Simulated assay, not measured.
Amino acid sequence: SLRNIQYGGGPMPSRVIAEALDAFPCTLIQGYGQTEGTTMTFLSQEDHIRAIRDGYRTERLRSCGREGYVTSVRIVDKDGNLVPKDGKTPGEIIVRSPANMLGYFQRPDLTAETIREGWMWTGDIATWDEESYCFIVDRAKDMIISGGENIYSVQVEEAIAKHDAVLEVAVIGVPDDEWGESVKAFVVLKPDRTASEAEIIQIAKENLASYQKPRSVEFVDALPKAPTGKILKRELREKHS
């Protein structure tokens, strides 16, 4: 009787999607949204099946899909201009929808900052491809600036997650006297598996530019999470503030 599994909070590794499609007689749909604006984009069940079963545009499994039926989605620069649909130029996701909030309670200043000319600025940094599939690269507040370079924590996490022993990973920027911030990874290993700091740094280096790799790795038993299961990076940052 199970027909569909819907998930959110971030893309799932393609390995997990393939295992889910094999294990359950149903389809998968990913939704991206915020409390302020409900679900804004969808990665459809057809997108999942075509990527896993047919090998078509498998990179789109890392995306959060395209705009939904009642939403208009754009990715823009700081001045509100559309960024190219080239899959590599980052900008901020903005959304116009009747489902968007009217504003923050008793916070007209924050409302004015977030809703501009009918568009809600989400604070999520993303790229998009030629068919408007959106690839979130980070929350604006989670972006790491090290030695003047912008480093997106999600990209580092995706690289580290390629290690077979890694169950979960969260990446943050920590204060660094020389670089301003340096990249630190918190890693949860799978049961009965081992990995060294050098291995984690190496797999990141193999999949990223050298400046993006973590300079330190801390192995932990669990990552702090909200009741929804979302990793609370602010709690990790508080340890280093």
Rank of each mutant, 00 (worst) to 15 (best):
I52T: 08
A198Q: 13
S14R: 04
M101G: 14
F105T: 06
Q34T: 05
R237H: 03
V174F: 09
Y56E: 07
G180E: 02
T127I: 07
D77E: 13
V188T: 08
K162D: 06
E113S: 09
K205C: 10
T41M: 00
D54Q: 07
T122Y: 10
K162F: 14
P227C: 13
A23V: 00
I52E: 15
K230I: 02
T38S: 02
D109S: 14
P84I: 03
P90Y: 03
E168C: 00
D77L: 10
Q34R: 02
G118P: 14
I203P: 08
I29T: 00
I136S: 06
V188K: 03
A185S: 11
M12W: 12
Q6P: 13
D176W: 02
R3G: 05
E46W: 06
D164L: 04
L102Y: 11
A126M: 06
R116K: 14
T194S: 01
G173Y: 07
V187K: 07
E113H: 08
Y32D: 00
D192F: 04
S72V: 08
G147Q: 13
D164I: 05
Y7H: 00
G10W: 03
R139Q: 06
G180C: 15
F24Y: 02
E131L: 08
T111D: 12
M120H: 14
D177T: 09
E181Y: 12
G87I: 00
V187F: 07
Y7F: 01
G10P: 03
K239N: 12
R57T: 12
I49P: 01
V166Q: 03
L82A: 01
R193M: 07
E36L: 15
D129T: 02
F219N: 04
Y7M: 00
T111N: 11
M40A: 15
R107V: 01
S132V: 02
L102R: 10
L61K: 05
L43C: 04
S97W: 15
G103E: 08
E218N: 08
I136G: 01
K225S: 03
R96V: 11
L223R: 11
I201C: 13
S196I: 04
K239Y: 14
T35P: 12
W179F: 12
V217A: 04
V76L: 10
E235A: 09
V156S: 02
V95I: 07
K141P: 14
I151A: 13
L223G: 09
L102A: 14
L82H: 01
K239Q: 13
V137S: 08
F105S: 07
G87P: 05
N4L: 02
G103H: 01
A185V: 03
T71G: 05
L208N: 09
D164P: 13
